[in-house]
Simulated scan of single mutants.
Amino acid sequence: MTTTDDLLDRLSAHGAATAGKPRLVFGGWLLGAALLCAAGVSLLLTEAFYSVELYGLGPMVAKWGFSLSLILFCVLALRMLGKPGRNSGVLLALLALPFVPVAALLALELSTAGPMMDGPTWPRCLLAMAIMSPIGFAGAVLAVRSMAPTRLHSAGLVAGLFGGALAMTAYAPFCPELGMTFMTLYYCLPIVLMAGIGWMFGPRLLRW
């Protein structure tokens, strides 16, 4: 008879997918969500990277530097959380790393120029985050479900962070706004909110 340890070892190595290759299934769901978000904003919005023409690369580097690094850490953490018995504590701690320079730049802005948050496109920014974050979240949930997650709250939280970061990555080229206060209020806070939703609903959505 198969022991529990043997079962966990097999799930750790191969995931819980019953068909296909787990890595391809995992990556396929994440890539599909990314392509869906990118296609959506490309079809509905115009003047991509207009902020680069106006202000140079700095604002775009700050936005994408944050969101892409968060996506990378989320993908690594989701892969680890999908394998029972693996120690994912270090990767989960690394998820806070992209927020560190944001906090530092926000403190610098507040202490020198004051809060920069009055950009006129903020409703469009929030709408884009509200529409695309659940798409990225759903892709991450389906990706993790193709494996064998056991820490469901944590996996849900990371899936939420991934969804928010993916939405920010897709919309950022069309955002002409400046300021770390704007970025914190209209990007970072929605991402954290999506992570909280993932934490709450992770056990329900990821149970297998």
Rank of each mutant, 00 (worst) to 15 (best):
L110D: 05
K63D: 10
T4I: 15
P203A: 04
V141Y: 00
M180C: 06
A195Q: 04
Y55A: 14
C125L: 04
I197W: 10
M1D: 12
N87Y: 10
G156N: 08
L81P: 04
Y187H: 15
F49R: 10
G82M: 00
V100W: 06
D5N: 13
L35A: 10
L127N: 04
R145K: 14
L36A: 15
T181R: 01
T3I: 06
Y186I: 09
S12E: 15
C175V: 08
M194D: 09
S133C: 08
S51P: 00
L7V: 14
C125S: 14
R204V: 13
Y187S: 11
L31T: 15
G119L: 06
E109R: 00
R207K: 14
L8G: 05
R79H: 13
A93Q: 09
D9Y: 08
K83L: 09
V75A: 03
S42E: 12
L189A: 14
M200C: 09
L193Q: 02
P149V: 08
G20Y: 07
P84Q: 03
D5G: 04
A17H: 10
G56H: 10
G179S: 03
P22K: 02
G85D: 00
S111K: 08
H14N: 14
A17G: 13
G82I: 02
F66C: 03
A170C: 04
S69W: 09
A48H: 11
S51F: 11
G202T: 11
V102D: 06
F137R: 05
A39C: 14
I135D: 01
S12L: 06
M168A: 13
L108R: 13
A34H: 00
T181F: 08
L189F: 15
L189H: 04
G65F: 07
Y186S: 08
L105S: 12
C188I: 15
R207Y: 11
V25I: 15
L91E: 05
W29S: 02
P190G: 07
D118W: 13
L72N: 00
A195N: 01
L78G: 01
P173N: 05
G179Y: 06
C125P: 01
F99P: 07
P101E: 00
G20C: 08
L30I: 07
